[in-house]
């Protein structure tokens, strides 16, 4: 717990840490896949320089921990028309380089990414975008079988990424 440890967290210093940040709303079924992957990774034995955070639907509140990390591996759902469970590894620079339908809270992730430019502290971001089907009416805690079965592969790729 380097980034969230209250003492380290207070100092606002850049820490040689890889932040794995799962984003999404677990009440909206597949939309929460990023958080599910983060929870999964949290149960694995990971190197000391890696920290996994359930980012939920938090936007601006994530600014501090993302700024302090050396590198951010972001996991989020995208509705891009691809087969559900498709994994894309992207290294976007500006918010406009991100998939159009990535957790599109209007004041959300993209505005947060713009904010890094405004503050001149742009972290290195690697994005794992997981394709999901358009959301059904209502809420659900369950992932679809297509997205659920993609999780071991996502986890595998991320573990290779941090090796």
């Amino acid at each position: 717990m380097l980034l969230l440890n209250p003492e380290g967290y207070m100092q606002n210093t850049k820490i040689n840490t890889t932040l794995i940040l799962g984003i999404g709303n677990t009440l909206l079924a597949d939309e929460g896949v990023g958080v599910h992957v983060a929870n999964y990774l949290n149960q694995k034995k990971l190197p000391d320089f890696v920290e996994v955070v359930d980012g939920g639907t938090g936007s601006f509140v994530l600014l501090g921990i993302m700024q302090n990390a050396d590198r951010v591996i972001l996991i989020d759902a995208t509705i891009d028309g691809e087969k559900p469970g498709t994994i894309k590894r992207l290294t976007p620079k500006f918010s406009k380089d991100y998939p159009k339908t990535l957790t599109a809270h209007d004041i959300g992730l993209k505005d947060l990414l713009d904010a890094f430019y405004l503050l001149d502290t742009v972290p290195k971001v690697i994005l794992y975008a997981i394709s999901i089907a358009p959301l059904a009416e209502g809420l659900s805690l369950e992932l679809s079988s297509e997205v659920e079965s993609a999780i071991p592969e996502i986890v595998d790729q991320i573990l290779k990424e941090i090796e």
Partner: peptide, 20 residues
């Protein structure tokens, strides 16, 4: 933008984590 990321640390201190 800079300041707001500080005040939310109160949630991490008393609530163990932030967000949520």
């Amino acid at each position: 933008l800079e300041w707001q990321k500080e005040i939310v640390k109160i949630h991490a201190i008393f609530g163990g984590k932030n967000p949520h």
